[in-house]
Design a protein around this nucleic acid. Sequence first.
RNA 1: GAGCCGCUAGCUCAGUUGGUAGAGCAUCGCCCUUUUAAGGCGAGGGCCGAGCGUUCGAGUCGCUCGCGGCUCACCA
Length: 495
Amino acid sequence: MEDINEQRTQRIQKLETLRAMGIQPYGTRFDETHQIQPLVDSYGSKTKEELEHDTIECRTAGRIVALRRFGKAAFASLQDGAHRLQVYLKKDVLGEDSFRLSQELDLGDWVGVEGHLFRTKTDELTIEVQNLTFLSKGLRPLPEKWHGLTDIETRYRQRYVDLIANPAVHKIFETRSRLITGIRNYFTEQGFLEVETPMMHPIPGGATARPFVTHHNALDTDLYLRIAPELYLKRLIVGGFRRVFEINRNFRNEGISTIHNPEFTMLEFYQAYADYNDLMALTEDLFGKLAQDVCGTTKLEYQGQIIDLTPPWRRLPYFEAVLEYNRFDRTVLENRKAAEAAAKQLGLAIPKDATLIGIVNMIFEETVESKLIQPTFITDYPTEISPLSRRKDSDPSLTDRFELFITSRELANGFSELNDPIDQRQRFEAQVAQREAGDEEAHYLDEDFVRALEYGMPPTAGEGIGIDRMVMLFTNQASIRDVILFPQLRPEKPS
RNA sequence: GAGCCGCUAGCUCAGUUGGUAGAGCAUCGCCCUUUUAAGGCGAGGGCCGAGCGUUCGAGUCGCUCGCGGCUCACCA
């Protein structure tokens, strides 16, 4: 089972050496005066003379990631998160016992150091260590210092090693966390209340997707991991919460790709008395502020392109978009035969029972989405493919809805919410008919949700933003696996 | 699910027309009190993803399987 290699065996032997020296190889608390990054931030600009004149004493801790030994001295690089600082271990200063301990150190071990800052001959900020505290032993060798860990499978399966060996990866996940904190602050400051709704649903709803199924033994009932929190959040609006948001996982039982992970993080927020135009303005403002705060600019570099998040963003009605990116005329949008002919010309396989809108939507996905590099709101989606959205007053076949595309990917979906319970029931029934016709992704009829609407929901606008894809954009990552700490992989086979 | 590519030491990678499996880093020993891919001398470390075949002989050729990546299909 466990791979036993030479280096690991040697290190296990070192545990005994340490114990024989009276050192606990798995220690306990250590008081730091500084973490490494603040230490470097505070004193990194001090000159050699300043550090000699005003002695800076400090205690800090980290993992040894580089070690350059001489006979009676050594330099080590201490890593804390994504940051490193050099320490100098000198026999004269450490004393006999501590120096002997320093001779036993391996790459990967955790230590605490106490000493003062100085600059070396080559002007590197360094701690001259007076006291060395052993904190924890590493038994496995770290990846090579120069190339690090590059094997993609190992990076995902053993993310802890990736994080040690690749500080840039550490920074991506710090950025992810900062973005999510920024989102929380943004909504909280605007009077939104963060709520938690069920992850396990008796009826999966709020999106068109296939769910994961699980079983509750005591209730003896199947439950579905949620595909979206939407219907629960709207129940809260019915209940009188004016503004709510939730940031959490959705689960969809579908393929895995560079932009799909079976569990992914979604922000959904709902605002009473607002409409979809308010949401588009809010989204521009949110992205702009996050970009400015986290990246220092609203012009982001993404995979060799500059994505300009400066508002306002382009708004393009759905049908206009289909016409703009194709050569055919308007009859394709109005006549099923014309639509089918156009689709065939594009090489699309059209199911026999496909509706006009169904065909147009296939054309949209095939010809429009890939062109939407810069932020674009596609608006006014057909009612037929928007079963939870409010109809347009000017044209009930369309809805007050938009999807946001950036770098050809859907990042957000928002709309004025359908709050007419009678219309909602009819839309659900149309979905149920589609499901019975074989569409596994069509919505279920959620009787309790309709009942909630019957109690009256104020006019409301709601939106979902795919956080992982947003993080990809802000951190310039091409694969969703590089912004999810533990992406879904096939289980490692037991060896 | 399909196509293409990859899998060799702890890590990063070589490996010729099929002929005894290599390097750098890491590890171990010795030397070295300002190095930073430290340096010098020496040493150990391999089920070449798994299996089956072809062959006198397979890391190398063929087939099957496993895992991963990318593209496509489905999807957010």
